[in-house]
Design a protein around this nucleic acid. Structure first.
Length: 584
RNA sequence: GCGCCCGUAGCUCAGUCGGAUAGAGCAUCAGCCUUCUAAGCUGAGGGUCGCUGGUUCGAUUCCAGCCGGGCGCACCA
């Protein structure tokens, strides 16, 4: 784990100080505490602060202030590392790093480029991220969109932190829902052929079902009418399944999402995998018969009760194939399974973790990321949706209206486990109210800056070629400090499986870029826009940012800084699956 | 009734090893474009961090109990 390249140095120096104080017998330190640094809220508290002295106070039986003083006294090369080091009130150690050291951050960004922020934290651990997995019974809706955005971001984050990641879509192409789909399409088909039929009770009501039925008719004419009902229903089902799955694939592709693999539930049943897995559980004595049904003893692993895997009528439940599915995932050798589910499935977690444990793995091997509902708004007013009545806003409609990037970023802005208000009007607005454009604009703006510089023949040096010592303004140093936090955010965001942290970071970074751009001149004024000094009266007001002159060295240093900022914004948007435009 | 999630500014939300005077965006109000992209910037107001106890040097953060909201508690998926 890194705390940032400079913070790591500081942390090491403080640890070193603790060790040498222990050698001298000034501190006991039975175990060496981790030296955790934090970014102070107020500038006068320095660049980094450390609370280790306070947390040691109890075990060392010394006043925090005294411990802090001991640490301070034992830092090697203190003056070359810190411009200021002071102890505040209870025992805060407030440190200001020598300004020159921060330039290492820019060198690191230059050296690592697209890899900046990436790490080997995952040590090649194999992870399978399963997401979307919507039933192929209709088009994807906004909720699926959020799951898709979250899943894709998780894949990106885990890859960036050194995991060996695969992504998969589980197709629920078996069972009751599929049967209903077939029956629904067949009913519409018959209607279309002029028959009066009663529509299945829980059938799929959406308009798209009629559309599928129309295509069946276009392809097969009235042929299905003369078939036995089961055959007609099966053919309708298979037809609809193909059509709807293709639709889902198209929508995902348009959303910029692809999967390494698509896993069919039906294949688990036809291959005998489900039977096999139940037989395995039987030998483990985790399966038993009761009331004519077959049960999985999930309560043995902390689930609140046992669960039926085969109904009285002999049919398998959804859980049965899900056990087989997760058994299959484990058998494929993944070290970690990440499932992205709708939050309404949260009650399902204990039983799936029971499955994992039944196969001898710690339950942590399965981590479930819950994605809460999306409230769709339009201009602040709720858009009513009813899946039952088949009325819902599809992901496609949202993409048509606001674009894939905006939709994704909105989905990722908040903790996935909380309800999300998604205002279509807001997401569509290309204005300051829209966080997507705010971040993308930071990237595009720098791109523009670099373009203008190039067109004027101004050199845009990389950090290694720039005079970075000239970057000493607090705003410049603050920006660099923010850049140094990027790898930390990446690791935390990936480790907690919380993409919104990265989205927030990018919002914050952009929130520093725009003010900086406005406040500080980077390029010299354009030759043709420079007002002639001769015609300005002596009483002319102080030149504003536009006409300020700037030393060539500082232009170079600031361009190098901006280049690094742009790299970080791009890397961040990249892991989230959002584009980083060169111009807007 | 039991379980999980959530209660932080008018609104939507950040804040995970417990730290200093609790943050951001939007909305509101007042300003900034002959200039490197105004899809931007500057400033102002706005809070009993649901409530009550506990743990301790210190709690929005951890624990317990309440109150309020969401979801789940199927031989549906």
């Amino acid at each position: 784990m890194t705390q940032g390249i400079i913070q790591d140095k500081v942390s090491a120096a403080l640890t070193g100080a603790l060790l040498s104080a222990r050698e001298k017998g000034l501190l006991n330190l039975e175990s060496l505490p981790p030296v955790h640094l934090e970014a102070p809220k107020r500038p006068e508290w320095g660049d980094v602060s450390c609370t280790v002295a306070m947390s040691l106070s109890a075990s060392e039986r010394k006043a925090p202030f005294e411990i802090a003083q001991i640490i301070l006294d034992h830092i090697e090369h203190r003056d070359s590392l810190f411009a200021r080091a002071e102890i505040v009130r209870p025992g805060f150690l407030n440190l200001t790093v020598q300004p020159g050291l921060w330039k290492e951050v820019l060198h690191q960004i230059e050296a690592q480029g697209e890899q900046y922020g990436h790490s080997q934290l995952g040590r090649g651990r194999r992870v399978l991220v399963e997401y979307v997995s919507a039933n192929p019974t209709g088009p994807l809706h906004v909720g699926h969109g959020r799951g898709a955005a979250v899943g894709q971001a998780l894949v990106g984050l885990l890859r960036a932190t050194g995991h060996d990641v695969a992504s998969e879509y589980y197709i629920n192409d078996a069972g009751r829902q599929m049967k209903l789909l077939g029956a629904s399409v067949l009913a519409r088909y018959r209607e279309s052929c002029g028959q009066t039929v009663s529509f299945p009770d829980d059938g799929y009501q959406g308009e798209y079902i009629r559309a599928v039925a129309e295509r069946v008719k276009a392809e097969r004419g009235a042929a299905l009418l003369s078939l036995p009902v089961e055959d007609a229903e099966r053919q309708s089902r298979e037809f609809a399944y193909r059509e709807l799955l293709a639709l889902i694939r198209q929508d995902l592709e348009r959303f910029g999402i692809s999967f390494e693999s698509w896993f069919s539930e039906a294949s688990l049943l036809s291959s005998g995998a489900v039977e096999q897995v139940l037989a395995e559980l039987k030998t483990k004595e985790l399966l038993f018969d009761q009331d004519g049904a077959q049960w999985f003893r999930s309560s043995a692993f902390g689930d609140e009760k046992d669960r039926v895997v085969r109904k009285q009528e002999g049919e398998y439940t959804y859980l049965a194939s899900d056990i087989a599915y997760h058994r299959d995932k484990l058998r494929r050798g993944f070290d970690l399974l990440v499932d992205v589910w709708g939050a309404d499935h949260h009650g399902y977690i204990p039983r799936m973790q029971a499955v994992v444990q039944a196969y001898g793995h710690p339950k942590e091997r399965l981590r479930v990321v819950l994605v809460q509902m999306v409230n769709l708004l339009r201009g602040g007013r709720k858009v009513e949706m009813s899946k039952r009545a088949g009325e819902f806003i599809t992901l496609r409609e949202v993409m048509d209206e606001v674009g894939a990037d905006a939709a994704k970023f909105f989905f990722l802005m908040r903790d996935s486990s909380t309800h999300l208000d998604f205002d279509l009007e807001l997401a569509k607005q290309q204005s300051q109210e829209n966080p997507v454009y705010y971040v993308q604009y930071a990237h595009a703006r720098i791109a523009s800056l670099l373009r203008v510089a190039a067109s004027r023949g101004i050199e845009c040096p990389r950090p290694s070629r720039a005079t970075l010592e000239l970057l000493e303004d607090p705003d410049e140093l603050a920006l660099i400090r923010k850049l140094s936090a990027f790898p930390v955010v990446m690791e935390a965001s990936a480790g907690e499986l919380e993409p919104h942290r990265m989205a927030y970071y990018l919002r914050e970074l952009a929130g520093m870029v725009h003010p900086f751009y406005n406040k500080h001149r980077i390029l010299p004024p354009a030759p043709d826009s420079e007002p002639s000094a001769a015609i300005l009266p002596d009483s002319a007001p102080t030149p504003n940012r536009g006409t300020d002159t700037i030393p060539p060295g500082l232009t170079g240093a600031r361009l190098a800084l901006m280049w690094a900022v742009q790299q970080v914004v791009r890397n961040g948007l990249n892991v989230l699956g959002v584009s980083a435009p060169e111009q807007m």
